[in-house]
Amino acid sequence: MLHNTSSKEPIVKYTYGELLSTEDDIVTEFPITIHINGQEFATMVCTPTHLEELVIGFLASEGVILFKDDIKNLDIDEDRGFAYVTLKKATINVDQQHYSKRFIGSCCGKSRQFYFQSDVKTAKTSMTKISLTAEQCINLMNRMQGDSVVFKETGGVHNAALCTPTDIIIGRNDIGRHNALDKIYGYSLLNKISVRDKIIVFSGRISSEIMTKAAKIGVGIVLSKSAPTDLAIRLANDLNITAVGFIRGNSFNVYSHPEKITRA
Score class of each variant (00 low, 15 high):
residue 9 E to K: 15
residue 12 V to N: 09
residue 18 E to S: 13
residue 19 L to C: 07
residue 20 L to M: 14
residue 24 D to F: 12
residue 27 V to I: 12
residue 27 V to Y: 04
residue 28 T to M: 10
residue 30 F to D: 03
residue 30 F to E: 02
residue 32 I to R: 01
residue 33 T to R: 01
residue 34 I to G: 03
residue 34 I to H: 04
residue 35 H to G: 04
residue 35 H to N: 13
residue 40 E to Y: 13
residue 41 F to G: 03
residue 42 A to G: 01
residue 47 T to Q: 04
residue 48 P to K: 15
residue 49 T to P: 03
residue 51 L to S: 02
residue 56 I to T: 10
residue 69 D to N: 12
residue 69 D to V: 12
residue 71 I to E: 03
residue 71 I to V: 09
residue 75 D to V: 10
residue 79 D to W: 00
residue 80 R to T: 14
residue 81 G to I: 07
residue 82 F to R: 00
residue 83 A to E: 00
residue 84 Y to F: 10
residue 91 T to S: 12
residue 94 V to R: 11
residue 96 Q to D: 12
residue 96 Q to S: 11
residue 99 Y to D: 11
residue 107 C to H: 04
residue 109 G to N: 05
residue 109 G to I: 08
residue 111 S to E: 15
residue 112 R to L: 15
residue 113 Q to V: 06
residue 114 F to G: 02
residue 114 F to M: 12
residue 116 F to W: 13
residue 116 F to H: 14
residue 119 D to Q: 12
residue 123 A to M: 15
residue 124 K to Q: 15
residue 124 K to E: 05
residue 125 T to H: 01
residue 125 T to V: 14
residue 125 T to D: 02
residue 127 M to Y: 05
residue 128 T to W: 09
residue 132 L to R: 06
residue 133 T to M: 13
residue 135 E to Y: 02
residue 136 Q to P: 01
residue 137 C to D: 06
residue 138 I to Q: 07
residue 142 N to P: 01
residue 149 V to S: 08
residue 149 V to Q: 07
residue 150 V to L: 13
residue 151 F to S: 06
residue 151 F to E: 11
residue 151 F to Q: 04
residue 153 E to S: 09
residue 154 T to R: 09
residue 154 T to P: 06
residue 155 G to A: 10
residue 155 G to S: 11
residue 159 N to E: 14
residue 161 A to N: 10
residue 161 A to K: 08
residue 163 C to D: 08
residue 166 T to G: 00
residue 170 I to W: 04
residue 172 R to Y: 13
residue 173 N to D: 12
residue 178 H to K: 09
residue 179 N to Q: 07
residue 187 Y to L: 08
residue 192 K to G: 03
residue 193 I to P: 00
residue 195 V to H: 07
residue 204 G to P: 01
residue 204 G to T: 00
residue 211 M to C: 10
residue 214 A to E: 02
residue 214 A to R: 00
residue 215 A to D: 01
residue 218 G to N: 06
residue 220 G to T: 03
residue 224 S to M: 03
residue 224 S to A: 12
residue 226 S to M: 08
residue 234 R to L: 11
residue 240 N to V: 01
residue 242 T to V: 11
residue 242 T to Q: 08
residue 242 T to K: 08
residue 245 G to P: 03
residue 248 R to G: 08
residue 253 N to W: 02
residue 257 H to W: 09
residue 258 P to N: 06
residue 259 E to N: 14
residue 264 A to E: 15
residue 264 A to N: 15
